[in-house]
Computed example of a mutant assay.
Amino acid sequence: MTTLTPAPGAARRANLLGGRGALLVLVALVVFASLRYDGFLSAYNASSFFRYNSMFMLIGIGMTFVIITGGIDLSVGSTAAMASVMAALASPHGPALGVLAGVLAGGAVGLLNAVLIIRLRIEPFIVTLATFLGARGLAQLASHQAAVSVDSGGLFAQIGQGDVLGIPVPVVILAVALVLGMALLGFTRVGRTALATGDNEDAARLMGLQVDHAKLLVYTLSGLLAGLAGVILAAQFGAGQPTEGVGWELTAIAGVVVGGTLLSGGRGSIFNTMVGVTLLGLIFNILNFENGKGIISIDVFWQNVIRGAFLLVVILLQARSSRTP
């Protein structure tokens, strides 16, 4: 079987765009914002920013693995919402059980996605669209379509609201997940198989790689991390949120793409995904600061338009870089 690969020059440009390019833009925005807005570099703003965006970053790690294999997971937003409800319902029995309930609920959705994709050979888009709807329905059924308060007298809320040595607990959790994710992708057989699968699945199978095993792990991992994001959501806001998570899957996919991971699979970086998600979150943060100056006022709808336009430009540049010899 003959495969087409980008010319070396195109590959270098694509790597530059996906890796260093996003990082350079991020640094430039931080410098700009620090000079323009008082309090931008304050500990409060940094803590609030990463405490909230840690949920998207966790989902982004799982989404990176999925997209690297050439797949997609549209269910992560609904899975996080369902997991937040399950965690809140279990939180009166102790913080450990609350965390376990949320993470396992997410893992169950990821495992179901994997089994349907692998065994029934259904396209990931269709499978995860179905579980997207199913998880949302389960969240609403379990919560009776209302927010479910967490145990206010226990330690569960500290998972989202607490600090460790001045560092938000969600950031500590994210750091652990980030290190483990980078190690899994860069130094294990599962990571190498996932990359090979996205590059050319048929060739990977002919090489004797355990493609189905890798898919099983990455989709389950995506569900587990979405479940963990749901736990943080419930702990941070003091309640399971059945109506939250709308559009989270698009935010995660956008962060992965901005970070340079190819939507067709075969190439990606966990670190660059973190840069992409941070960059997208920073755009909102800067727009909020700009609104606070009172010179212009950009409502949330226009903020979404701006972020969507930015994502479109990145995708067009990525496509052009991969095609140009």
Rank of each mutant, 00 (worst) to 15 (best):
T3Q: 08
P6N: 09
A7I: 11
G9T: 08
A10M: 11
A10S: 15
R12W: 13
N15D: 11
L17I: 15
G18Q: 06
G19K: 09
L24K: 02
L26N: 03
V31P: 08
S34G: 10
S34R: 00
D38N: 14
D38M: 09
F40I: 02
Y44E: 15
A46R: 04
S48V: 14
N53V: 01
S54Y: 05
M55R: 14
L58N: 00
I61S: 01
T64D: 02
F65I: 01
G70R: 01
I72A: 02
I72W: 02
S75G: 03
T79E: 07
A80D: 07
M82K: 01
A83G: 09
A83N: 08
V85A: 10
A87F: 12
P92Q: 11
L97F: 14
G98A: 09
V99R: 04
A101E: 04
G102C: 12
V103L: 14
A108R: 00
A114Y: 05
I122P: 00
E123R: 02
V127A: 03
L129N: 04
A130S: 13
R136V: 10
L138M: 12
A139P: 05
Q140Y: 13
L141V: 14
L141K: 01
L155P: 01
D163E: 15
D163C: 06
V176M: 01
V179A: 09
V179T: 00
L180G: 03
A183C: 02
V190M: 10
T193P: 00
A194C: 03
A194V: 06
N200L: 07
D202G: 13
A203G: 15
A204Y: 04
A204Q: 03
L206E: 02
G208V: 06
L209V: 09
D212G: 14
L216A: 15
L217W: 14
V218C: 10
S222F: 05
L224T: 04
L225Q: 09
I232R: 07
Q236C: 11
A239T: 13
G245M: 07
W248Y: 15
T251F: 12
T251S: 09
A252W: 06
G255D: 07
G260W: 01
T261F: 03
L262H: 04
S264N: 10
G266R: 01
I270V: 15
T273W: 11
G276Y: 05
E290S: 13
N291P: 05
N291D: 10
I295K: 02
D299E: 12
I306C: 09
R307D: 03
R307H: 07
F310E: 03
L316N: 07
L317I: 08
Q318A: 14
A319Q: 15
P325H: 11
